[in-house]
């Protein structure tokens, strides 16, 4: 990616000489830097495409379901299986082919995409909330609380996350009732996967938040509100956390990407979302047994995962440059 901080004009000053200087707010500046970030724009385009695909694509999910002898639309069509049509290569009727029990892969990538994105975003939110809480509590209270929480954070960081995911998936695995989410039936395992991914990925965030707050804590305005008798919670939530927002936004964005990949890993190892609910990850489950016979089984969901993760990474990189031009970059 091009490094926009090198080329952006110095904040707030127009380069064209004697015109009235209108100082830009930090937010406007950030937006401007973001829009100049080429990779970020490509990323936005990819994400836009995928959003259109998984939302409006559902209008194209329709067809005749032979075993039920009716025409179906939407998710019902995506779940319609016709074992007579199993493992069909891509064709006019099934442009991405069919899977091992004759479900339409195109329709399943659409509805699976919705779940994968839902998992990605929810897990990232969960991760951010958890990381923020732990980081903020550790930094604000300091002392033994800080010590305990940070030792715990370090310990979690030192366990490779894939192992944590595998173990976590077993820890919470098993039967949970089906729940209704915006009119869609979701198996309980969707929630489980969200929780597991969140629980195994909050550590970096907690550290960032803690470090930021530690440096902010001694600033005058915090001391002032403390002197005015503001409660701990109020200081944490209205002063400290908002000022750590930039790194949080970046981490949360990248968190969505890693959550989607994590979901795919867990599913790949057979521990992912269960039942008839499709996700890009569980569409890949077992598909590699058909590496040779039916490459369309793994190619389409795999490529979609690659695209969305790529898009999010581009955007995340743009956000990082935009929100915090002086941050040292870690890839």
């Amino acid at each position: 990616m091009s490094n926009p901080s090198d080329s952006t004009p110095i904040a707030g000053f127009s380069s064209s000489g004697d015109q009235v200087i209108v100082p830009l707010t930090p937010t406007q500046l950030a937006i401007r830097r973001f829009r100049k970030h080429r990779m970020a724009n490509i990323g936005l385009f990819i994400l836009g495409f995928i959003l259109v695909y998984i939302s409006f694509g559902s209008l194209l999910s329709r067809g005749y379901c032979a075993p039920l002898q009716t025409d179906l639309t939407g998710e019902a069509y995506a779940n319609c299986n016709d074992t007579k049509l199993k493992l069909q290569p891509p064709s006019k009727d099934h442009i991405f082919g069919t899977d091992v029990i004759g479900r339409d892969i195109f329709a399943r990538t659409i509805y699976g995409g919705q779940i994968s994105v839902l998992i990605g975003i929810s897990a990232a939110i969960f991760e951010v909330v958890l990381g923020m809480l732990i980081g903020a509590i550790a930094a604000y209270y300091g002392g033994w609380i800080d010590n305990l929480l940070m030792r715990f954070t370090e310990a979690m960081l030192n366990i490779p996350s894939l192992f944590l995911l595998i173990i976590g998936a077993r820890f919470f695995g098993g039967g949970l009732p089906t729940i209704n989410f915006f009119g869609r039936e979701l198996t309980g395992s969707v929630i489980i996967i969200i929780v597991i991914i969140g629980l195994t990925s909050w550590m970096y965030l907690a550290r960032i938040v803690r470090a930021n707050i530690l440096s902010l804590r001694e600033r005058d305005y915090v001391s002032a509100s403390r002197a005015l008798g503001a409660s701990d919670a109020r200081i944490i939530f209205s002063h400290l956390l908002p000022n750590t927002i930039a790194p949080l936004v970046v981490s949360a964005t990248l968190g969505v990407a890693s959550a989607i990949i994590s979901e795919a890993y867990v599913s790949f190892l057979g521990l992912g979302v269960q039942g008839s609910t499709a996700t890009w990850g569980n569409m890949l489950d077992g598909a590699y047994q058909y590496l040779e016979k039916a490459p369309w089984l793994w190619f389409f969901p795999g490529t979609l995962i690659l695209l969305i993760v790529l898009g999010i990474n581009f955007v995340g990189d743009g956000l990082r440059d935009a929100l915090d031009p002086y941050s040292t970059r870690h890839v």
Partner: peptide, 24 residues
């Protein structure tokens, strides 16, 4: 720029997807 773009692709690829593609 090419390397940058490619490295993002590499970075975004799930390991098993890359492995399967290479095998295929």
């Amino acid at each position: 720029n090419l390397i940058t773009g490619l490295s993002f692709v590499g970075f975004s690829m799930p390991v098993f997807w890359l492995a399967l593609s290479l095998m295929y």
